[in-house]
Nucleic acid binder design. Structure first.
Lengths: 350, 350
DNA sequence: CTGAAAGCGCTTACAG
DNA sequence: CTGAAAGCGCTTACAG
């Protein structure tokens, strides 16, 4: 492909035809052996200062950059870690990806992002592909892969997974306390005097959705408020489902003064549904979301919500991966949920 | 790293210690030579059916997956293309990344995403890194790299760039008509009877920002409306700047009935600024944005805006790259701007 | 059509 | 501390 009509299979020591500077050229320029250059590059050996200086100079002068493919082939390590996200443009996981990138980069590791699209089979393909590319470790952001599949993968290479809690060799998990977050959100509404609090749920397949429902119920129970099934309407974690949920709620003629949506996207949809019916937030109904999406602070009104530390999650997952890669047991811990009080709730007058 | 204490430098034909199936094992199982397997894999040769069948069977049975690093080293092609985006979690470029991923994937190419953070030097580092990783081509989403740097890069490997128009060998550019989009948006407001239309601008360093200002002025001129500098307030393409711009506008006591924000993020900020002053959209002020961010349709009220086809842009850029890689001149063309009329504008009574 | 062999650019025991 | 050499898993002229 990038071959020029130069004499085939010759050995050029000046410069390969695509401008690539090789370790061999560096060695020659520095007057040392190829092995020595490699060792200096990898810090794999005691170094005699004179040689090191010569090599460093040659590297700088020639502008040598090691070929990652050759390194990977020869050394077995590619200095890259695979990241299975659900969609490369997910507004939800975006911050986590950034956190991962920002902590892996300085450590010399490259991130390889692939999208699982909330589909176990696709995620499995992603993992196979990453393994084929010889990544040194894999970070899995939630997803639908079975625990067993994850554990099996961890037997082959280090794995960090979020959104679940699991113990296995070579595996480290980081889970957010969705239950507590939802409890906090609901309690906030209760503290403001609300008694009829509707809940727009996520899908049962998401463990975090069921946890949030549990948190909602727990807060109700703590306050001696009766759980009313008619007040929980199913949603699907996206805006339209939030809007539809509000319409269903309104159509049911059930009384409520507040809505707790299991995620911000549904809260935004709910706000739109309310708006279309000329209902005001927070005057007519108070609204709380969950996740603290980047845009939620600019919602009308700014949305009170449970902050989910996705950026930190990414950083922590990457740190755990780095520790795993270094042969150490990860020590990172997930931060606790935090409620962000903005302007979408009001106190109910007694 | 992944070495086991097995006899060093031995040649295992059964299975390497990390479970890797090699082409050699396939060859052995199929009773052909290594070269033949390689040729079948690459479609590089006429194939005798019997052998092909045997090889295919062996591949399937052993679960062989070619090692991309070895392929890259030996063949000079890595089947990967680098993508320089500005931030891996950019809500704006997200759709483009998805479009790229979705069209490169089926073609057997892998996307390598790196973030330039709107910084020319960082982008240059990204490109060096991608070249070090031997990607087969590079897609650059806008960014601040100089045209010269881009052209220089294109001399080394195929490059597709967006957000500018440039001619050079090995380079293909895809540019969105920001001028026309802004003209359309402004004209829409004019058609609705607005005469005093404020403009929240982007930063002058962004060529698209200056184009949008030009479009605004052109529409005004076409309608014989005088351009009033006091009506254009500087913004910085993010929400807070939009909010600040509205405050400045209000403080100036300048009269206006509509606002055209140079992007949706500022429009959202402007909406919040208006909300805080109890000004209603569209009753008190009509508002138009630019970009059609995923969340804009759920704004309160849903935002009228110029749709920017980022997903298509990604697909087109990837298609162009595939054509370049195949040695063909790209034929793709950018779609024209389109105004999306939603609910943030109203007709002014004469 | 198909094999044997060199080579891609590195790393890493193995011997000094 | 340092070299020579084998090997990582492929591709691709070179000869049949």
């Amino acid at each position: 492909m990038k071959k020029t009509p130069s004499p085939p299979q010759r050995k050029l020591l000046q410069m390969t035809d695509d401008g690539q500077v090789t370790i061999e050229m560096v060695a020659k320029a520095a007057g040392v052996s190829l092995s020595t250059v490699s060792r200096i590059l990898n810090g794999t050996a005691g170094v005699r200062d004179a040689k090191r200086a010569a090599v460093d100079a040659a590297i700088a002068e020639l502008g040598f950059v090691p070929n990652p493919m050759a390194r990977g082939l020869a050394g077995g390590r590619t200095m890259s870690v695979g990241v299975v996200t659900q969609s490369i443009d997910s507004p939800f996981y975006g911050a986590a990806l950034r956190g991962i990138e920002e902590t892996l980069d300085p450590a010399g590791y490259h991130s390889v992002f692939v999208s699982g699209h909330w589909h176990a089979a696709t995620e499995a393909r992603c993992i196979n592909m990453l393994r084929a590319r010889r990544v040194d470790g894999i970070i899995v952001l939630t997803g639908r892969l079975s625990d067993a599949a994850l554990k099996a993968c961890a037997r082959k290479l280090p794995v960090v997974a979020t959104g679940r809690t699991l113990e296995a060799p070579g595996l480290y998990t980081l889970n957010f306390n969705n239950f507590e977050g939802a409890r906090l959100a609901t309690q906030h509404l209760i503290d403001l005097g609300h008694k009829r609090i509707a809940f727009i749920s996520g899908e049962d397949e998401h463990p975090d959705a069921t946890e949030r429902l549990r948190g909602y119920r727990a807060a109700l129970k703590e306050a001696d408020l009766k759980f009313d099934p008619a007040l929980v309407v199913p949603g699907a974690y996206h805006e339209v489902s939030g809007m539809l949920a509000v319409e269903a709620l309104l159509a049911s003629r059930k009384q409520f003064t507040a809505i707790f949506a299991a995620n911000d996207q549904m809260a935004v949809g709910a706000a739109l549904g309310l708006y279309k019916r000329s209902l005001r937030i927070p005057d007519d109904v108070s609204l709380v979301g969950f996740d603290d999406m980047p845009t939620s602070q600019f919602a009308l009104p700014p949305l009170t919500t449970v902050h989910q530390p996705n950026y930190e999650l990414g950083k922590l997952a990457a740190e755990a991966m780095l520790q795993l890669l270094a042969g150490q047991p990860p020590t990172v811990k997930m931060p606790e949920p935090q409620l962000l009080r903005r302007e979408s709730c009001r106190r109910l007058r007694a």
